[in-house]
Design a protein around this nucleic acid. Structure first.
Length: 118
DNA sequence: CCTGTGACCGAAG
DNA sequence: TCTTCGGCCACAG
């Protein structure tokens, strides 16, 4: 499957993208995780996974509550950002919700991945 | 308006 | 299983 979108594929990403990301992430219940790509797909464009991650950075100091720690990458690992710190906090928060990590520091997506209801 | 910048993703080696 | 590489697109300055 091609990484590039077909020419005719519409861009469903509209203005206020970050706000949309927050709304989606808020629908993930405790004890479950989702991936950046999955959130992007829920927004209509699977190719904006990167922007989803970028939005989470803002979610940290956002006034509204956003369970940013429940978003991991496609491999089930906690992504490390420029700061480096915070990734450990994310793992702690998830473990507090009952999410187990493997020896290689990854979660079993087949088990914890949250599927958004239609 | 133009440019730089990523908490990503999938394929290939 | 790990590393490298190219492409993607919203947002800030």
């Amino acid at each position: 499957m091609p990484r590039r979108a077909d020419p005719g594929e519409p861009r469903v990403v509209g203005p206020g993208f970050h706000a949309r990301v927050f709304a989606v992430v808020r629908r993930v219940p405790a004890g479950h995780v989702t991936t950046y790509g999955q959130v992007a797909a829920a927004l209509g464009s699977a190719r904006v996974a990167r922007q989803v991650g970028f939005a989470m950075a803002g979610a940290c100091h956002a006034d509204e509550y956003v369970p940013w720690h429940r978003v991991v990458n496609a491999k089930g690992a906690v992504s490390t950002r420029s700061g480096g710190d915070g990734a450990e906090d994310q793992r702690e928060l998830l473990e507090a919700e009952g999410v187990e990590f493997s020896a290689s520091g990854r979660v079993d997506l087949n088990r914890y991945r949250w599927v958004f209801p239609e």
